[in-house]
Design a protein around this nucleic acid. Sequence first.
DNA 1: AATGAATGAGTTTTCATTCAT
DNA 2: TATGAATGAAAACTCATTCAT
Lengths: 208, 208, 208, 208
Amino acid sequence: MQTENGPVGRKRASFIERARREQVVEAATETVARFGYAHTSLARIAEQAGISKSVISYHFEGKDELMVLVAERFIEAATERLTAGVGAQTTASGQVSAWISSQVEYYAAHRTGFLAMSDIIVNHRSPDGSSPFGGPLEEEVEELAGILRRGQREGAFREFDPRSTANIILRSTDGLISSWVMDESVDLTSGLASLLDFVHHAIRGDDR
Amino acid sequence: MQTENGPVGRKRASFIERARREQVVEAATETVARFGYAHTSLARIAEQAGISKSVISYHFEGKDELMVLVAERFIEAATERLTAGVGAQTTASGQVSAWISSQVEYYAAHRTGFLAMSDIIVNHRSPDGSSPFGGPLEEEVEELAGILRRGQREGAFREFDPRSTANIILRSTDGLISSWVMDESVDLTSGLASLLDFVHHAIRGDDR
Amino acid sequence: MQTENGPVGRKRASFIERARREQVVEAATETVARFGYAHTSLARIAEQAGISKSVISYHFEGKDELMVLVAERFIEAATERLTAGVGAQTTASGQVSAWISSQVEYYAAHRTGFLAMSDIIVNHRSPDGSSPFGGPLEEEVEELAGILRRGQREGAFREFDPRSTANIILRSTDGLISSWVMDESVDLTSGLASLLDFVHHAIRGDDR
Amino acid sequence: MQTENGPVGRKRASFIERARREQVVEAATETVARFGYAHTSLARIAEQAGISKSVISYHFEGKDELMVLVAERFIEAATERLTAGVGAQTTASGQVSAWISSQVEYYAAHRTGFLAMSDIIVNHRSPDGSSPFGGPLEEEVEELAGILRRGQREGAFREFDPRSTANIILRSTDGLISSWVMDESVDLTSGLASLLDFVHHAIRGDDR
DNA sequence: AATGAATGAGTTTTCATTCAT
DNA sequence: TATGAATGAAAACTCATTCAT
């Protein structure tokens, strides 16, 4: 259905092209963060970016591509940061701490992006009705579960179901950010400390 | 804005009036759960209820009021159940368990309502762009924090920041339900066991 | 995808409903006749009818349904007239004359409808890309071919390929109307006489 | 409306200019034939030609000019061929056969062009809503009528109204092609034979 | 001579809301 | 009380055209 209108699909993008896409992604992020996925229209994004609606259609295949892009960009960047943080640690315990801290710190530093991403993940559906963000989350759980298993083998962590527990840890981390994101008066620093403390007490080996 | 005909705003509602509102709230809940907030229209709700669209406008101020009501009803019912469950326990530790279990069990038994509520909380905005569901959650945190404080005073729980920790517990409980709600293959029973185990290890006094 | 908006799909239509649909079909017919299929928009139809665009969406499933309806209505009425005219004749020769005359007379009396119908038949595509009007035409050819065959058996007509010839007769009848429809200065009465004369000379048995 | 830069309106076109126009006309023909007038956009034409949209605007006054040109080109070429074919015959009867055959053969050999031309003739309107293709057809009728008149004077053809009959012959020829063009399973060779047979029986002098 | 970029008008469709009955 | 009908605003998207380079 896509005719050769614009740059969509071309191999190499010009400088202007990349700059515009960046600008639009940025504006979309802010719009979703501010008004929520359901109230985000191309018109609002265009207004936020100070451009006309059709510029968006010119540079992107459609609203869907744009929304997915906003979420993916953020997830990629966060994952990169996470991998770096976790990789710098050697012990299972250190890696769990690094995981949580990296996540919280990155999200805290990119509040708008986090808001937009969560909203999109919850709401966005592919045309067939399925959510395109199920897979990545599942992988995350599995990876953290791997770290937990290693900690159990090494005796650093007590016995528990690694997958359930990984899920709980990830969810509570997300939850902490969410509570701060919705209400900035929440003290994130002390919240992070509490969370680390909480998690480590929950999983550490009994034979301290 | 409102004509003098409708029942909206009248002090005392008739029986029929209340029954209709109930029916519409029910239909709205199912519609949001099934199609998501963004794809819920008054037409779909009316279809679900087997009534005409204008009935909704007649009985409710507008779509916004209805959406807020759907979420509030669910929260109220869950809270009631929670209060009962927690009240049946005497020890702080028992109350924490009861809190988590009641929540999980109630949500699990009312998947549709939970789905609708979460979707509405995440997406619904007042005309000015702000989310109207900050307050209630805050109260919940404070109440659970109170239980934790008592547990600390009584020596059942170790030292930690009660508010942060209450927040974490609530968020991880919500997170567990969410993961089940989005993917019913998740084993909620073992998930609940893991969560209880996790939380109690996290907060119990060190001197067992 | 159709939610319970309006009366679309309901079993029994109200009087107003039927009147409005009639009015819209009428306006659509005139718009297509005047501006052509490609330049017919719902906005133009609405303007022609003196109603707002959304009235059309309320009473019809979409532009497609409306266009198909315009064509079908006309074809049905013309076919009815044709059947009556042809049925009143007993000889094959008389039936051929009746066929051509009925067609020409009906089309001549409903110029706008004819224009709209032809335009729609040529241009309209089902969502899958196919034309929904291939079948009916094919049937017409087959039916006229049947009459021709009978005439041949009875010795009224000479030998020729019935299907090809039926096709030619139908096409030239359509062609005659088209030439009048595009330029009203064409004398349709003498054109019809010529056509009847032409066709009968072309197909009559050699042994007169 | 036109800036002083472009070549549009210049008296003498360069070689490149002519080549480009030719290329675009070619691409436009294929696009209209493939997708239909209503779904032909400059973007699609440009894609088909492997050039950018703005090239078209640069070389042509607008979409309208281009569409008209596509139809005119085809009509001119067909007319040239027709004139040659008819001119090679001396008898009126031979010229009628030649007319029909040339037309059918040319159209059959240039299906794409024929499709595009018919689509454009039917659909294209001047801004005021009128169709700009009435004239040329009128001339054709007159010319064929001339041949028929000569045949009548020479006794080869019987008495009939020459203009009406010319119109009928032209319309049935077009109709035959149309039926083949829309459904290639139609046997054009036998269709042509039938048509020639049909026409000659219709117009020949009674005194054979 | 060519084009990437931009735009505004226009496309169909959806929808919350109003209103006469 | 209820609703069929109507509507205007807004949605996503398309497209012919313009323009600076």
